[in-house]
């Protein structure tokens, strides 16, 4: 049994693919450094990340498998699943054999897993494009915090770079301790150690209040359906969402089940 260990980045994973072919080591398992358990019957190899190699592998996937496969690899790396790289390597290797048809092999558990993870990542990121709430700070920078299951930050940053093009913003992933910082030009994703102190602008409280009032008054009381609401905006998102934070009226927070 062969196990590859690497740094967990996309470039790192692509270097593993490179090593799989050029070092002739058909890895059975691929793990991020630090999130695996040593097995007795396996040989371990630490694969260093080499951007030059990863670029070549990415190009090869685009040419010999498909563009869809390229995006699948990118998104799957963002998922929160220990076994994802193992499945992803099998998926890429199948791709080099079967070409674009690799995505049809849904009976293959690894292909299916990659597809499911990609779907999960994209779905969560899509939800967050709606649920992400910015606060205006005194300095004019808009600050939002999120704590998604998967690493949705790169996808979100792409979305908001376009949408909120003319205002500087920060999206802080408190679960991973990283933040995307946009300066009206481009964004960077950097590690952030402490939770920053957010100093809200004078108008901020007023608009939050207005928004909460709006949110409460659009609900039709005869149709109250908390279960449906909870399915659609799960509780785990709510701690970052303005309208679910504190002073909401009683009928929003503790409604009877119908």
């Amino acid at each position: 049994m062969l196990t590859a260990i690497f740094d967990g980045s996309l470039d790192g994973f692509l270097s593993v693919v490179y090593s799989c072919y050029y070092d002739k080591r058909p890895y059975d398992y691929v793990y991020e450094d630090g999130v695996y358990q040593q097995q007795l019957d396996s040989d371990y190899f630490y694969v260093p990340t080499e951007p030059a190699r990863s670029v070549r592998v990415m190009e090869a996937i685009g040419k010999r498998v498909s563009q869809d496969a390229q995006t699948n690899v990118c998104y799957c790396c963002l998922a929160n699943d220990k076994e994802r790289f193992t499945s992803l390597l099998r998926y890429v290797r199948l791709g080099f054999k079967a070409g674009a048809a690799a995505d049809n092999y849904l009976q293959d558990p690894h292909v299916l897993k990659v597809h499911k993870l990609v779907q999960y990542v994209l779905r969560e990121a899509h939800l967050l494009t709606g649920f992400c709430r910015f606060k205006e700070t005194k300095s004019g920078v808009y600050y939002a915090s999120i704590s998604p299951v998967n690493n949705a930050l790169p996808i979100l940053a792409e979305h908001f770079r376009e949408r909120l093009m003319n205002q500087p913003w920060v999206i802080h992933d408190t679960a991973r301790g990283i933040a995307a910082v946009y300066d009206c030009n481009d964004y960077r994703i950097d590690p952030v150690k402490n939770s920053p102190h957010v100093d809200c602008s004078d108008d901020e409280a007023r608009f939050q209040e207005l928004w909460r009032a709006f949110f409460d008054s659009v609900a039709i009381k005869e149709r109250l359906n908390k279960d449906l609401q909870r399915n659609l905006i799960p509780l785990r998102f709510r701690k970052h969402v303005t309208e679910f934070q504190n002073n909401s009226p009683a009928f929003i927070t503790q409604a009877p089940r119908l």
Partner: peptide, 11 residues
């Protein structure tokens, strides 16, 4: 894009 869901479950 749905931004939130009201207490009646509507987007």
């Amino acid at each position: 894009i749905c931004h939130t869901f009201a207490a009646d479950g509507r987007c």
